[in-house]
């Protein structure tokens, strides 16, 4: 399983550099208060998109799944490895973007983004898991190449989603419903919403995994 993850990273060494450069670009372009809260979340979604799609395209390119399915490996393991790789990509994205953010602070540029925090990770985790829970069953059914355009549009929606959700929140901030919701969360220990988010992520990913596995077990090469 670790080997499959290692494979997904080895076949795209250049992605690390790309994401690092993208991080610098992103902090400069989105350097305004509108995006400040969301910048790491958006960055991590891009990181997942980029690593995931690049790895899948490489698998597609030489029909390398023929090799994977000729090795002493179960189809379930192959599917599970793809799901687990997403968490690795979030972490890699967090580290790379966190470092870029830190560098900006240390360099004392006029532009000083805030540092990455746990809420960023949880929010990115939540959005990414909704996103890939839909993407993966389609990927295992149709392959990365067929979904190329779809995946760009689909991930872009999720890229701008945090910004949209924040707008939505601000619009309804004064309403009773939002006030009650806020009150509920403030009264709880911070671990309760965190645990709820993690629970939702796991449920979504498990459900999606079972569907993908069902599809992949019937796939022919």
């Amino acid at each position: 399983m670790i080997s499959l993850l290692k494979k997904d990273l080895l076949i795209q060494k250049k992605s690390f550099l790309f994401l690092f450069l993208y991080g610098i670009f992103m902090f400069i372009v989105f350097n305004n208060p509108v995006f400040e809260d969301m910048i790491y979340i958006m960055g991590m979604i891009i990181a997942v998109y980029f690593f995931l799609v690049t790895a899948s395209m490489e698998d597609d390119k030489n029909k390398s799944e023929i090799i994977l399915n000729s090795l002493p490996l179960s189809k379930s393991q192959i599917v599970l490895a793809k799901y687990l790789s997403v968490f690795a990509y979030i972490l890699i994205g967090a580290v790379l973007l966190g470092v870029v953010g830190l560098l900006f602070q240390l360099a004392a540029f006029s532009l000083t983004p805030r540092l990455i925090n746990a809420v960023d990770l949880l929010a990115a985790g939540m959005l990414v898991s909704i996103c890939v829970s839909v993407y993966f069953p389609l990927y295992f059914r149709f392959g990365a190449s067929a979904l190329r355009l779809f995946s760009v549009v689909f991930f872009l929606i999720f890229f701008f989603m945090p910004r949209y959700l924040l707008d939505l929140y601000r619009t309804y901030e004064g309403t009773e419903a939002v006030r009650l919701l806020n009150k509920f969360f403030i009264e709880q220990s911070p671990f309760v919403p965190a645990a709820a988010v993690i629970f939702i992520i796991l449920m979504l990913m498990t459900g999606s995994f079972l569907i993908s596995r069902y599809i992949y077990l019937r796939k022919e090469f």
Binding site: E58, N62, I67
Partner: peptide, 8 residues
């Protein structure tokens, strides 16, 4: 045909 990863 070669199905191994060409990048590796």
């Amino acid at each position: 045909e070669n199905h191994y990863y060409e990048e590796l």
